[in-house]
Design a protein around this nucleic acid. Structure first.
Lengths: 138, 138
DNA sequence: GATAGGACCTCTAGCCACTAGAGGATCAAG
DNA sequence: CTTGATCCTCTAGTGGCTAGAGGTCCTATC
């Protein structure tokens, strides 16, 4: 357990430059170095980075992750904050799913209606132009 | 129909700085100016910008939009490209929906399992850490 | 014709979360 | 001892805007 950055990368599926970037923005602590100035990581960093990656995949922002990591470091604290971060996030995800589902419907319709002929008959171009009246809904 | 940029913005729900940005990256042509150097737009620009906004809302990237605009400018061309841009986009959207739906399930479970007590019992932190083994699926 | 204040102008820099590339040092195997 | 993969730092670029500074123009009212 004295892993170079490439091995940490392999074990966490986080790219090497991204690991260095996370260190730079303070998401990962500065690890010890070899005499030749190369980073060496242990089990704790593998866990922490996996935590970070998973949270990023779930769509949490870096600031949220910072909060979550800080909380997990003090197990006596209330999990109220973690709960509300997750709840806010759930609302946002539901909103995104709804919006993407609507887009999917519209795209599918556009593709179905495309006559596969020339642009002048093509519903894709037309559909994009047609909706010039539906102003933003946010 | 000799609209200043603010009026174009109102009619298309695209913010003024964004309109100037679109001009800068070549999505919108450079409009004529008044003697005092202010932009003036006509009906064509309202349409074009509405097309752009709608395509952006549907999640098309600027490069895709550039292609779609170029195609719509030559109505005798085949719409094969428009079709494949839209199809690729649909695949991507379906992928995102599936992934967000999975995340939603996981977040819901996390929130349900959170004991509303202390971090040491909180499933939110744990759930994020737990999945340290599920490597990226892309 | 003067003036007020809103809308406009250009330009630079910042946002997020990375990603790419230059140019060089180090490490491990043969 | 050499090879070549991996590592280092540093700067700059990505996409799609957004914000702010510092100044000019337009139009309505007095």
């Amino acid at each position: 357990m004295n892993l170079p950055i490439g091995e940490l990368s392999r074990r966490t599926a986080v790219k090497v430059p991204t690991i260095r970037f996370y260190e730079q923005i303070g998401l990962l602590p500065k690890p010890p170095r070899t005499e030749g100035n190369q980073r060496r990581y242990g089990k704790a960093e593998v866990d922490r980075l996996n935590f970070i990656r998973h949270a990023r995949e779930l769509g949490f922002e870096v600031d949220d992750i910072r909060d979550l990591l800080a909380m997990s470091a003090e197990p006596q604290a209330s999990c109220h904050t973690a709960d509300s971060i997750a709840r806010n996030h759930l609302v946002e995800i539901e909103r995104r799913i709804a919006s993407l589902t609507a887009l999917k419907g519209e795209l599918t319709r556009m593709i179905d209606e495309c006559g596969h002929g020339h642009i002048c008959d093509c519903r894709i171009i037309e559909a994009l132009a047609d909706h010039s009246q539906c102003y933003g809904d946010h």
